[in-house]
C-alpha cells in the first residue's frame, strides 16, 4: 500500500516535469553612464543558451536608461526589455534595487536570473536569491538546460580554477540564479533587424534606506578596460615601485594597445590600483595575449589568466611557476628586456 502510493506520487511528479514551462530568463543588463556593460552581453549569450525567452532588465536614473534601452532592443537573443527608472537608482545599491527584483520575480514568470559576475551583480543577486529562498551559483563557464526535467546544468571553476565542478540545479529550485564568467561566453552582438519589446516597470521606492551612496572614485585610463581587452600586460612585485611599474610597463602596454594588469603583490605594494588585480580574487581575464612581467605565477594569479590564448612571461627566475603555463618564456632582467622589446616591436 505504502509502496503503491510512492509510485503514484512519483508518477505525478514526473508528469508535472513533462509539462514544465519552457525557460524564461531575466538578464540583469548593467550599464555605466549609459554604456552597456560588455559582461552583461556575455550574460545574455549564456541566457540565450537556456533555449527559451530572454528578458533584459535595465535599471537606472532616467537620463541614461532610455539610451541603454534603445541599444538593448537591438541585441541578438533578447525577446523583451524591461526598464525601471527612479532617482533612487542613480547610484545602484543592492538595498534599493533588490525590492524591485523581488517584486518582479514573485510572479513566477521567470525561471532563471542571470547576470555577469560584476561587483554589483555579485552584491545584488545573492541578496535577492536569499529573499526568495533560492540558492545561487556564481561565475559559471557553461550552461545547459533540460526542459523535460526542468533542470539546468552548469560548470564552474572552484579552488582557484584548479578544479571544474559540474553542478545541476534540479527542478526543486524554482528560480535558478547564476552569474556568468564573461570570458567564457561571447558577447551578444547587436543586429539592426532585431527589435525587442520594451516596457517600463514601476520602481519600488525604498523609504528610509539604511544605506547612502557617498562617492565613487574610478581609476581613469585611456587604455582598454582590463576585463575586455584583447591584450593585457601585467606586472608583479619585481617592478620594484609605482614609478618603475609605470615607466616600464606603460610604454609596452601602449605599444601593444594593451590593458595593464597587476599581480596581488604589485597591488598590495601600491604599484597599481586594486581594480587592476588579476587573479582568483581580482579580475579574471582571457585575452589573446597575456604578458606577465616580473610575475612568479602563484596559483591565485594563474586562476585569473590561464585561459588566455597566448601567454608570454618575462622573468629573471628560470624556475618561476609562470614558465610552466607560458607559451613563450624569456628568462631575463625585465628592466633590460622590456625596453628592448618596446623598441623592437614598434614598426
Amino acid at each position: 500500500m505504502l509502496r503503491a502510493r510512492a509510485v503514484l506520487s512519483s508518477r505525478t511528479l514526473s508528469r508535472s516535469y513533462a509539462t514544465a514551462s519552457p525557460p524564461h530568463a531575466l538578464v540583469f543588463l548593467e550599464h555605466r553612464q549609459g554604456v552597456l556593460d560588455s559582461g552583461s552581453l556575455s550574460a545574455l549569450t549564456a541566457a540565450e543558451q537556456l533555449g527559451g525567452k530572454v528578458t533584459g532588465l535595465v535599471v537606472g536614473a532616467s537620463d541614461h536608461v532610455q539610451g541603454v534601452v534603445e541599444k538593448a532592443k537591438k541585441l541578438k537573443g533578447l525577446t523583451s526589455v524591461l526598464h525601471s527608472t527612479s532617482a533612487q537608482y542613480t547610484e545602484l545599491l543592492p538595498e534599493t534595487v533588490s525590492p524591485l527584483l523581488e517584486k518582479l520575480l514573485s510572479d513566477n514568470l521567470f525561471t532563471h536570473v542571470v547576470s555577469s559576475t560584476s561587483s554589483f551583480a555579485k552584491s545584488l543577486l545573492p541578496r535577492v536569491a536569499a529573499k526568495l529562498d533560492a540558492p545561487a551559483i556564481s561565475d559559471v563557464t557553461s550552461v545547459e538546460h533540460d526542459s523535460s526535467s526542468n533542470s539546468t546544468t552548469f560548470t564552474r571553476p572552484i579552488y582557484a580554477g584548479n578544479a571544474i565542478a559540474t553542478v545541476r540545479a534540479p527542478s526543486s529550485i524554482p528560480i535558478k540564479f547564476f552569474t556568468v564568467r564573461s570570458t567564457a561566453f561571447a558577447a551578444a552582438p547587436s543586429q539592426d533587424s532585431a527589435e525587442a519589446d520594451a516596457s517600463s516597470l514601476e520602481p519600488v521606492e525604498v523609504t528610509d534606506s539604511p544605506i547612502q551612496h557617498i562617492s565613487t572614485t574610478l581609476t581613469k585610463s585611456d587604455r582598454p578596460d582590463l576585463g575586455v581587452a584583447s591584450r593585457v600586460v601585467s606586472g608583479g612585485r619585481a617592478l620594484k615601485n609605482a614609478e618603475t611599474f609605470a615607466s616600464t610597463l606603460y610604454p609596452l602596454a601602449d605599444a601593444l594597445g594593451a590593458a595593464v594588469g597587476a599581480s596581488r603583490a604589485a597591488v598590495d605594494a601600491g604599484y597599481a590600483d586594486n581594480s587592476l588585480q588579476v587573479g582568483q580574487t581580482g579580475k579574471v581575464v582571457a585575452p589573446e595575449l597575456y604578458m606577465a612581467v616580473g610575475i612568479s605565477g602563484a596559483i591565485q594569479h594563474l586562476a585569473g589568466m590561464k585561459d588566455s590564448k597566448l601567454i608570454v612571461a618575462i622573468n629573471k627566475d628560470p624556475d618561476a611557476p609562470i614558465f610552466q603555463v607560458a607559451d613563450l618564456g624569456l628568462v631575463a632582467d625585465l628592466f633590460e628586456a622590456v625596453p628592448e622589446l618596446v623598441q623592437k616591436i614598434k614598426p
Binding site: P135, I137, T153, P157, I158, G161, N162, A163, I164, A165, T166, V167, R168, A169, P170, S172, I173, K306, I311, P318, F323, Q324, V325, A326, D327, L328, G329, L330, V331, A332, A337, E340, L341, K344
Partner: peptide, 24 residues
C-alpha cells in the same frame, strides 16, 4: 545541498611552450 554536484574534474592542463633565447 540543493545543487547536485555531478562531477569534479581537473581543468585542461596548459603546457608551457618553452623558452626563447632573447628579445629578438
Amino acid at each position: 545541498p540543493r545543487f547536485e554536484t555531478l562531477k569534479v574534474a581537473e581543468p585542461p592542463q596548459r603546457v608551457g611552450g618553452g623558452k626563447v633565447q632573447d628579445v629578438d
